[in-house]
Simulated assay, not measured.
Amino acid sequence: MRRRPPWSRRRVWRITGWKTCDPKPIHAGARSPPNDRHAHPDPLHPRRARRGARPAAGGRGGGLPAGDPLRSDGAPGRGDRGGERGDIAILTAEGIAAQAAAGVLDGASRVDLCRSSVGVAVRAGAPHPDISTPEAFRDALLAAPTLAYSRAGASGIFFAGLIERLGIAAEVNAKATVIPQGFTAELTARGEVALAIQQVSELMAIPGVEIVGPVPEAINTRAVFTAALFQGADARSAALLRWLAAALTPELLRAGGLEPA
C-alpha cells in the first residue's frame, strides 16, 4: 500500500486574511502542495484557502468554539461554524495566543510563518503617488480623489486608526469607500477608486493594479501570521506543520508580498 504524505487528509484552518474572517479549511491532497500548479503562489492566500471544501462538524482535532469565529486580529468575527474541527490553525500571532489560552490550540506547537504589511495600489498605468515618507503619504491621501479600505480585519482597523493619528480622518472618510470585506484592489482595478489600501499580499492578488509600495515604515504595522496545532491533533498533523514551516521559504513569501517571520 502506498504511504500517504504527511499532508494527506489533514485539515488546515486559516482564518482568512486580515478581513472579518470565515474560517476555511484546506484539505491537502495526495500530491505535494508545491507541485499544485493551480494554487495561488502565496500559500496563505485566501484564493488558495478557498480551494478546499468545508469539513463536517465533529472531525478530528480540536474545535473552534461554535458561534465564535475569529477575525485575523483574534477578535470575535461573524457567523457560526458549528464547532467545526481541524488539525492546524493559521491566524495572527494574537489570534493563536488567544485560542491557546482558551484551550482550543496547542500553544507549545506554535510556529511563526510570515509577516505582512499594509500598502497602497493604483490602477495599472495610473501615476504612482509619492508615499516614501509619512508626510508624503499623508499628502497623497489628501490629494487622492477617491480611495478604498476595508472596515474589518487588521488592515482596515490599522488604517482607520492611522488616519485618526495623522489628523485627516474626516477628509479621507469623506471620499473613501469602506468595504465590509473582500479585496479593495478590485475597486481600483475597475476604476471606481484611485487608491486601494490593504495588505500588500492581498493587493497583489488582483490583476489590473500596480503596487505603489508599503505604507512608510515609521507609521506602518506588520501582522505576524502563526500556525499551531489544535489540541488533540496527531503526529501526522505535526509533520504537516513542520513541512509547512519549511516550505515557506523567503523567496516564496516575498513573491506573494509577504516577509519572513
Rank of each mutant, 00 (worst) to 15 (best):
S117F: 07
V122C: 00
R60E: 12
Y149E: 01
A205H: 01
E251W: 09
G107S: 08
P43V: 11
L195R: 11
D68E: 14
R11F: 02
E217A: 13
Q198V: 00
P76Y: 09
S155W: 05
Q181A: 14
A89P: 08
S8V: 08
R123C: 03
K175T: 04
Q231W: 00
V111T: 02
K175N: 09
E192Q: 10
G153E: 05
A255I: 10
A152W: 14
G257Q: 08
A98C: 00
G86F: 11
A101G: 14
V212K: 11
D68F: 07
M1R: 10
I179F: 05
A140R: 07
P41Q: 08
V200Y: 03
I197T: 10
I179E: 06
T177I: 04
I179Y: 07
G74R: 11
R10K: 10
R190L: 13
V215F: 13
L105W: 15
R54S: 02
A97Y: 02
R222W: 05
H128M: 00
A102R: 15
R14T: 03
A30Y: 07
P34C: 03
G74L: 06
H128I: 00
K24A: 15
S109H: 06
G156T: 05
A102K: 14
A176C: 09
P216G: 04
A223W: 08
F183S: 13
A227T: 03
